[in-house]
Amino acid sequence: MAAAGGTLKVSVWRGVETGRFQDYEVPRRESQTVLDVVTHIQRAIDPTLAYRFACRVGMCGSCAMNVNGRARWTCRTHVDKVAADGRLEIAPLSNLPVVRDLVTDMVPFFDKWAKAHGRFEGTRTRRDDFERVPPSSPARRQADAGIECIGCGVCYSACDVVSWNPAYLGPAALNRAWTLVNDARDTANRARLAAVAGDAGCHACHTHMSCSERCPKQIAPTAAIAGLKRAAMAAALRGDLGDE
């Protein structure tokens, strides 16, 4: 670990889609996170800096930014790990409209969750018994592998296919769809598979695996997307791929 003390040279994106990097000097502290650095700038140097955070403990998914060119959750990213030479470049997430400074508009990101039918749809009511889902069943394990997504947008920012095809649903929305495809209680899979099998759906993935490499929760959206490709193909071959 780098010793506390000294200063960090920090370049922070200021502006909207057009703008520039502004340089700041921030005191180096022990166990300092990138979010601590941004917060210091906003509270002690420049109160006009816009950024977003909430929980500060890696649960809410709201503080993701590009740090030295890589999308990361800043609250759990220690400066030690990313600023070996004492420099940080902090920018808003890629592939999303910039509201201001480090704040991106997450609406397109979550709209794609809706387009991918990322909402649970069941038929049981409170008067019905619980669905019995063995924890060891293959479907439950597939769902478990992707269920801890916090919706931070790191995978979406890191995805080359999104940058080439802005309509592409993206890793997070497709990962969410895959968890529901494996949910024994869900009844909307016919329409869900059709929704993710369009031109901008799972088959557009090139398996670059940037999403899986960058996901702060160690989820592998690439594996989920591969599962969707197989499931959609099987449904199409059965003649059972529904209408979107």
Partner: peptide, 8 residues
């Protein structure tokens, strides 16, 4: 169509 193209 995408699923058929991908399969092909």
């Amino acid at each position: 169509m995408q699923v058929l193209l991908w399969t092909a």
